[in-house]
């Protein structure tokens, strides 16, 4: 059946394929913004949709789908960060693929801007970064973010305030180191 997954549109059933087609692009970009290294992105996206598949029965179709999958992506990214930490301990790897400078061959302004955003996001703790990404990049409503992250509204506004300050400092070049 034809389904519409946008906010405010009622649906009666949603399949994994529907959610995938609707949100693949969003999930990919969200995981990258949450700090999943490029080399792991495809696996992380795959993992998000495995979880989506398992939890489809819990999904309330009256809710917008993107904040819902973003909440799942956040947990996968958190898990990925823990794995990366263990990997660094064992293998001496680093999860800082970006050096803070645009690549020499980056000629496009858009690519350079995105690289600056990535570097600035890297300075934010994950719990602040996810709120910043969901609110200031994705434009999700704060009540939706609060529901998907299971966090109080005031807490999220505080995180957003701190995230904005850190982000602004980072793009000015006087930011903190990686979070």
């Amino acid at each position: 059946m034809a389904l519409a997954l946008h906010a405010g549109v009622s649906v009666t059933a949603v399949s994994l394929a529907d959610v995938y087609r609707e949100t693949f692009h969003h999930v990919w970009c969200t995981l990258r913004r949450l700090g999943v290294p490029e080399r792991d992105l495809e696996d992380a996206v795959h993992e998000v949709f495995l979880v989506v598949h398992r939890r489809l029965g819990d999904y309330d179709p009256s809710r917008p789908v993107k904040p819902w999958v973003t909440g799942i992506a956040y947990r996968v990214a958190s898990d990925d960060r823990r794995r990366a930490h263990r990997r660094r301990e064992v293998m001496g790897e680093t999860d800082e693929p970006r050096d803070g400078q645009p690549a020499p061959d980056v000629a496009l302004e858009g690519a350079e801007a995105r690289n600056r955003v990535a570097v600035a996001l890297h300075t934010l703790p994950l719990e602040q970064r996810v709120v910043f990404v969901m609110h200031d990049i994705d434009g999700f409503a704060m009540p939706d973010i609060a529901r998907e992250l299971s966090a109080p509204l005031n807490t999220l506004y505080s995180r957003l305030r701190l995230a904005r300050a850190r982000f602004e400092a980072a793009i000015r070049g006087d930011g903190h180191g990686p979070a």
Partner: peptide, 20 residues
């Protein structure tokens, strides 16, 4: 809640055009 600066808004607009 402090508003984002113009520079930040410009960067975030570019970020929204990212694609897999």
């Amino acid at each position: 809640l402090p508003p984002l600066s113009g520079d930040a808004l410009r960067l975030l607009a570019a970020e929204r055009s990212a694609a897999p």
